[in-house]
Design a protein around this nucleic acid. Structure first.
Lengths: 342, 342
DNA sequence: CTGAAAGCGCTTACAG
DNA sequence: CTGAAAGCGCTTACAG
């Protein structure tokens, strides 16, 4: 009957202690690499543990107040490649340090994000990596009081008291725009992402700064609102074309919209990059498959997960980390959607 | 200091008991919907729990032998859309039933798959969903002895004693081939996947059966070995073309190879679908983006995760399930990579 | 350097 | 219908 878990088959610390002829405490010290056991005994016990394939019960460890060797990852979704890559970064890094993963998906729902609270209560994880939408200050305060280490991913805050790993969207957009300018483009349209999205804003800032840095006048008519979707990019580009305001390039604040833009241009008989150059942002898989392959800005997604985990693990181990806010660099991927005007 | 978890802030069952003026046991009964508490008292206690935002400590629950409300998912990777969709299916379904997810990625390494054993020991999960490569019979035996419910995904076995959820690759391939035949194709080439892959074999079987069912003679010259990669499909198709054996269609055992095949054909000046029709398998994102969009067989990936979770949850609740092996249907996605010869 | 004992927060017989 | 007590497997002061 699956209802009952017959634990009798499982080895406990007591079994190991008996086998080694010592007390449970001594085995525990060995397990946790604590002092107070002679090297000889330590080796002997380690061998027995190894031979028996004994693995300590994490639940008991968690309860007793020691490390559980689990870290919790709060993330909106798993089926999006962006999040999937973050998970992979977290997972690979934590695995390397003998940590396992608890996954909590929120699907961008505020209520589910709040349930994270229950999780922490459960003393099931030693630390938390959080990527969320609705995190408010009170939530952060709660976490602080909780005394559990946590790191935020892609959550830009001015609160210098919390650990964050964020992509440098602004510089990424700056570089992409400078690239277009270096090819001779001056009339560059910009497709905005979702209104509330801070990353869209950061990209727009980078775009603006690049124009300014190159003494190119900003033309508000060439800005179109979008929503980060393919359809949104398509519509934005159609609106742009209807304005009959001249432009030679489009900088889209993400790839999905850039793909929509390509379609809109093609429908109007315009060729990419012959008539219009396009740069996207994100380097999603589709960007290398479409015709023409898209020049875009790659985010260090995997690295974000990795970095956040490294920080968290150090915090869990009680290390002090000087810096709290980490900005990760993007990379411009040049493909064939841009043409030089020179 | 992050080293210490100050549990003092956290509510325990004892606090709730005091607040309600009852013993811990009574609160526990309410928590677990067990009989022995008057309806009135039950409601009162539930309200207090609600008001205090109390969440029981899963570690303690797990230790005490009750449900942890975690299920473990063993899976090779997260950054592959196939697996990501399975995770999503598992995660959405388990969340709906108030279950949380523990994720264990194995990266196809036998040793890491084995570490699953440690996990079970940990009484951290109530059940296990497993998608693995090296699972041997001894491993299955271990799980059975463990007394923990488990369900395998995409693990074809003749062992009628274990629960499995598998895609009906054979019927999927059968239908795809019949579709090509219905368009008038008789000279159909087949690109095999990785040699050891049982799903590749199943797809080949479906292909063969469709030929037989339609009295079309099987031509061994039109079979090419591949390895499920884009490059493998490209090379296989080049070899195929060098044979100078006539064919009007290609059935590739997955989309990646089909994409490689399209490239090989284009390089030889052949057009898809005008000169050669192509059908893939998997319905990966790229299949809808390439030119021409690929006709392919969609696997019910999300549904596999969902189905496996539903089964597992029922097992965890002690329900008996009559059937053990579930075959999930594929769906033919018709796009423009096939042309009728009629 | 080592062991006996208490305690983490829960559940579950067992009495009443 | 309800409560006192034992126990799950660990860790951690505290003695020795």
């Amino acid at each position: 009957m699956p209802q009952k878990k017959p634990k009798n088959t499982k080895l406990t610390i007591e079994d190991i202690a008996k086998l080694a002829g010592v007390s449970k405490a001594t085995v525990s010290y060995v397990l946790n690499d604590k002092p107070g056991v002679s090297e000889e005994l330590r080796l002997k016990i380690k061998k027995i543990i190894e031979d028996c394939n004994y693995v300590p019960n994490s639940a008991a460890r968690g309860l007793a107040g020691e490390k559980t060797h689990f870290i919790g990852l709060v993330i909106p979704d798993v089926s999006d490649m962006f999040y999937a890559n973050i998970i992979r970064g977290v997972e690979k890094t934590s695995n390397k340090h003998n940590y396992l993963l608890n996954l909590y998906t929120t699907h961008g729902e505020e209520e589910k994000e709040r349930r994270v609270i229950g999780l922490i209560n459960s003393s099931m994880v030693d630390g938390l990596i959080i990527m969320a939408y609705y995190i408010k200050d009170n939530f952060v305060d709660f976490l602080k009081n909780e005394g559990i280490p946590f790191v935020f991913i892609d959550y830009p805050t001015k609160d210098e008291d919390i650990y964050t790993v964020v992509v440098d969207n602004e510089t990424g957009a700056f570089e992409a725009t400078e690239y277009l300018i270096s090819l001779g483009h001056e009339k560059i349209a910009f497709l905005e992402g979702h209104e509330a999205a801070w990353d869209s804003k950061a990209r727009f800032m980078g775009f603006l700064k690049a124009l300014t840095a190159n003494s190119i006048e900003f033309n508000p008519l060439l800005i179109e609102k979008g929503d980060f979707t393919r359809e949104g990019g398509y519509k934005a580009t159609k609106r742009l074309l209807e304005k009959r305001e001249e432009f030679t390039a489009i900088f889209s604040s993400n790839d999905q919209m850039a793909i929509g833009a390509v379609r809109a241009l093609k429908e109007k008989g315009l060729k990419v990059p012959e008539d219009v150059s396009i740069v996207g942002f994100d380097n999603i898989e589709a960007s290398s498959i479409i015709d023409p392959p898209l020049t875009t800005v790659m985010q260090p997604i995997y690295e974000m997960g990795k970095k956040a985990t490294e920080i968290l693990l150090r915090l869990i181990n009680g290390e002090n980390i000087e810096r709290k806010n980490f900005l990760l660099k993007t990379k411009l991927i040049k493909r064939s959607s841009c043409k030089s005007l020179k």
